[in-house]
Simulated assay, not measured.
Amino acid sequence: MADTLSICSWNINSVRARIDIVEQLLRLEAPDILCLQETKVVNETFPTEMFRRMGYVHQVLNGQRMHHGVAIMSKVPVHEDDRFDWQANGEARHVGVRLDNGVRIENVYVPAGGDIPDREVNPKFGQKMDFLERMIEWSSALDKQPAILTGDFNIAPLECDVWSHKQLLNVVSHTPGECDILARLQASNDWVDIGRHFHPAPARLYTWWSYRAKDWAESDRGRRLDHMWMTKDVADKAVSHRVVEPARSWIKPSDHIPIITEFAF
């Protein structure tokens, strides 16, 4: 294991459709480990060769045709390939590995939850909340394992994590119920939100802007949906955390941007 290690997480919204900007990120930032969400490709047709050419020879895939999908691409060895079915329906929304130093990395893609924050009229919202309840059960059972939990959580938990708290109170991703359940998940293993550790509230720290905006940067109606949490022993090794906001303007962008944490192990 190198003295320093950088881990990047990015909801790419189809890795094959945006392979050019993935390569652009790898050339610019060269993270040691890249956790991708919403890859939208089965394992057999994942574009592995570009990653291999760039030095990411350790590849752990959990794909699904046209929907969901997660992957961990690494320059350093990874072990213990796990896939938890927190959706309880076989959807490819998690992949986990262990580094040589014993740190676990859990890469997760939480369901978006549809448009209406009511499980009675919108089953997708109920599925999202149930997914998070299963994550809480898992997290609560962890026994002092050094771990990193990262990915697209599809919840912006703090008032300052959205462009307008008042206007988004009833919008899925920032409703009180979602914020409460994410707080319970964080408390279940005393996870450190490394984004807010390095950029304390109320600092602006968005990771997602809708495609619907004519000019995403000018309107700046962002939300912090992508997160990197870690146990305190791992957080103590973190030296920086940042977002790659220019990526939202790259050619054929994802609506999410990469987040990167660097560690000194």
Score class of each variant (00 low, 15 high):
residue 115 D to H: 13
residue 78 V to G: 00
residue 98 R to H: 09
residue 140 S to H: 14
residue 99 L to Q: 01
residue 73 M to S: 05
residue 142 L to H: 01
residue 118 D to E: 12
residue 76 V to Q: 02
residue 76 V to H: 01
residue 115 D to S: 14
residue 78 V to F: 01
residue 131 F to I: 13
residue 96 G to A: 15
residue 87 Q to T: 14
residue 144 K to Y: 05
residue 55 G to N: 06
residue 107 N to D: 08
residue 85 D to G: 03
residue 58 H to Q: 10
residue 50 M to Q: 11
residue 98 R to V: 15
residue 48 T to N: 05
residue 136 I to C: 08
residue 81 D to Q: 07
residue 73 M to N: 04
residue 100 D to T: 14
residue 110 V to H: 07
residue 117 P to T: 11
residue 56 Y to A: 09
residue 65 R to Q: 13
residue 134 R to Y: 04
residue 116 I to E: 10
residue 86 W to Y: 15
residue 151 G to V: 04
residue 148 I to W: 02
residue 67 H to M: 12
residue 117 P to D: 04
residue 114 G to H: 07
residue 46 F to D: 03
residue 142 L to W: 02
residue 100 D to A: 14
residue 97 V to E: 07
residue 136 I to Q: 09
residue 77 P to L: 09
residue 82 D to Q: 12
residue 54 M to P: 00
residue 66 M to H: 11
residue 70 V to W: 02
residue 74 S to R: 00
residue 61 L to P: 01
residue 73 M to G: 01
residue 119 R to E: 15
residue 138 W to Y: 15
residue 69 G to P: 01
residue 122 N to M: 14
residue 147 A to C: 14
residue 116 I to G: 02
residue 150 T to Y: 01
residue 109 Y to F: 12
residue 51 F to V: 07
residue 130 D to L: 11
residue 100 D to C: 03
residue 70 V to R: 03
residue 71 A to P: 02
residue 90 G to D: 10
residue 84 F to R: 02
residue 78 V to H: 00
residue 133 E to S: 12
residue 143 D to R: 04
residue 103 V to R: 00
residue 149 L to Q: 04
residue 138 W to R: 10
residue 47 P to D: 13
residue 129 M to W: 03
residue 89 N to T: 10
residue 134 R to I: 03
residue 97 V to P: 03
residue 97 V to I: 15
residue 101 N to Y: 06
residue 81 D to E: 12
residue 90 G to F: 08
residue 91 E to G: 00
residue 85 D to M: 05
residue 109 Y to V: 08
residue 56 Y to L: 10
residue 116 I to K: 08
residue 68 H to E: 05
residue 124 K to S: 14
residue 60 V to Q: 07
residue 152 D to G: 12
residue 54 M to D: 06
residue 55 G to A: 06
residue 116 I to L: 12
residue 76 V to A: 01
residue 126 G to R: 10
residue 50 M to F: 11
residue 63 G to I: 07
residue 116 I to P: 02
residue 129 M to N: 13
residue 71 A to S: 15
residue 145 Q to V: 14
residue 64 Q to Y: 09
residue 138 W to G: 01
residue 46 F to P: 03
residue 140 S to Q: 15
residue 140 S to E: 15
residue 126 G to A: 13
residue 129 M to H: 11
residue 75 K to F: 03
residue 105 I to W: 00
residue 139 S to F: 02
residue 47 P to F: 09
residue 45 T to A: 11
residue 63 G to N: 06
residue 47 P to M: 10
residue 108 V to L: 11
residue 152 D to A: 13
